[in-house]
Write a protein that binds this DNA or RNA. Structure first.
Length: 415
RNA sequence: GCGAUCGUAGCUCAGUUGGUUAGAGCGCCGGUUUGUGGUACCGGAGGUCGGGGGUUCAAGACCCCUCGAUCGCCCCA
């Protein structure tokens, strides 16, 4: 490679071969399942005004200030490459009058951008599938959304992953819990890790999932959200868990599962690989496969009417790492011309084959005596070889494929 | 933002305590062999050893800087 060849941007990936097939398999499966649950397909812009994200996410963490791809366009507006789907979908819901479709079940997928240090399962341009139900306040919406996520993972053949479920209560419950956590940890502040001492100021809920031993000794006795839940919030969570049981979705209570952003209410969840599972191994430190929750507070932060909503998103790259090998499928037919006199005839044949809906590779270049070897290496159900004015058809595999092919090729007079 | 490990051919890698003209396998291209054939053999193209600086008679190897990759911490919408 010449040294003046431009390199790929850090944290971006060029996906090829089996990895690309696995990626496509995830998207295709998502599309199929989303139709089963009657989620409507939406397409969203890749960039928005920066305030769409800054107002939605809030200025609470480093997220907005350090981890977004923001830039000024020629008109002087501050724009940002979307770091998530939800805020943009909420904006679209408000600006397009999608209230008329409420409750709106919407699904999309595509690239997202976050300025983070790349590591296993984490890239600066990455891709997610996403599902949202907007304008539905009832716990049944949470159940349907989770049932869909659960079925998707099953259909992808991903095993050893469990739904971790928690409730953050309503705004009131949540605020009281947060205050109690701060009180509790303040008393032992000196014994906490440096990171958690800082979290105490910026993001106290996050102390609960600290990996540091010094913090973990205090976690068991920390105040629980359940002590602060209102009656309504308790009833809501019970309705969700009852619904999940009825839907046959396995779950486990995760009292320390939290969300950093203020707009989250009630249900919060992540599908996480079980310790020691192959899935946990494959994902490294980026363990969450699919995550989401209820975000009843979001619409207001964008200036809209209070609108209940719940959604989830999952990284396609991470899912693709879990679905195993998806090798590129063999061609139905390889047409190989071993005699340049017959190139046109070969081209005619391969065109007819493809027009009939049969996948075909065409080999008519390079050393004549090596073309057949190439044809064998390509991998196919059948090889149609042309030389010396003659055609020879050879089946590489037995079974349904050959039967189907044979009948199709007979119709084309190529057998 | 912090830390660890690693950068040699398109790919996977070897290269001894620093010592001639930097190698292998695979892949690619050409040829011979085989001739319903995935073989074997011969040949070829392809590297300023990530980049820059330094030490030395001599650096792919040692030192510094830098860029990149990988993994972890932080963060995680």
């Amino acid at each position: 490679m010449s040294k003046n060849t431009p390199k790929a941007i850090r944290g971006t990936q060029d996906i090829f071969g089996a990895d690309a097939e696995a990626f496509a398999y995830v998207v295709e499966t998502f599309e199929r399942v989303r139709k089963l649950y009657r989620f409507r397909r939406i397409e969203m812009p890749v960039f928005e005004k920066t305030e769409v994200f800054s107002r939605a996410i809030g200025e609470t963490t480093d997220v907005v200030s350090k981890e977004m791809y923001s830039f000024e366009d020629r008109g002087g507006d501050s724009l940002t490459l979307r770091p998530e789907f939800t805020a943009g979908i909420a904006r679209a819901f408000l600006t397009n009058g999608w209230q008329q479709h409420a409750p709106l079940k919407a699904a999309t997928h595509g690239p997202l951008f976050r300025y983070e240090r790349p590591q296993k399962g984490r890239y600066r341009q990455f891709h997610q599938i996403d599902a949202e139900i907007i304008g539905a306040a009832e716990p049944q919406a949470d159940v349907e959304l989770l049932a869909m996520a659960d079925q998707l993972l099953k259909e992808l053949g991903i095993e050893g992953v469990t739904l971790h479920l928690n409730t953050l209560g309503d705004a009131d419950s949540r605020d009281k819990w947060r205050a109690a956590l701060i009180d509790y940890f303040k008393k032992v502040e000196g014994e906490l890790s440096e990171d958690s001492q800082e979290r105490l100021e910026k993001n106290p809920l996050r102390i609960l999932d600290s990996k540091d031993r010094r913090d973990q000794q205090f976690l068991a006795d920390a105040p629980k959200i359940d002590e602060f839940l209102t009656e309504e919030a308790t009833a809501f969570f019970e309705a969700v868990t009852t619904g999940l049981d009825a839907a046959g979705v396995k779950w486990t209570r995760a009292e320390s599962l939290v969300r950093g952003l203020d707009y989250y209410r009630h249900t919060a969840f992540e599908f996480i690989p079980d310790d020691g599972s192959a899935a946990a191994d494959a994902l490294g430190a980026q363990s969450t496969v699919l995550g989401g929750g209820r975000y009843d507070g979001l619409m207001e932060s964008l200036g809209g009417a209070p609108t209940p909503a719940v959604g989830w998103a999952a990284g396609i790259e991470r899912l693709a790492m879990l679905v195993g090998g998806h090798s590129e499928p063999a061609a139905d037919v390889v047409v190989v011309v071993e005699d340049d006199q017959m190139t046109a005839e070969g081209q005619a044949a391969v065109s007819a084959i493809r027009a009939a809906g049969i996948s075909a590779e065409f080999i008519a270049s390079g050393g004549k005596k090596k073309r057949f070897d190439k044809a064998v290496k390509v991998g196919s159900h059948a090889i149609l070889a042309m030389s010396g004015g003659e055609r020879r058809l050879r089946y590489q595999s037995e079974g349904e494929d050959s039967v189907r092919l044979a009948s199709a090729l007979r119709k084309l007079n190529l057998d």
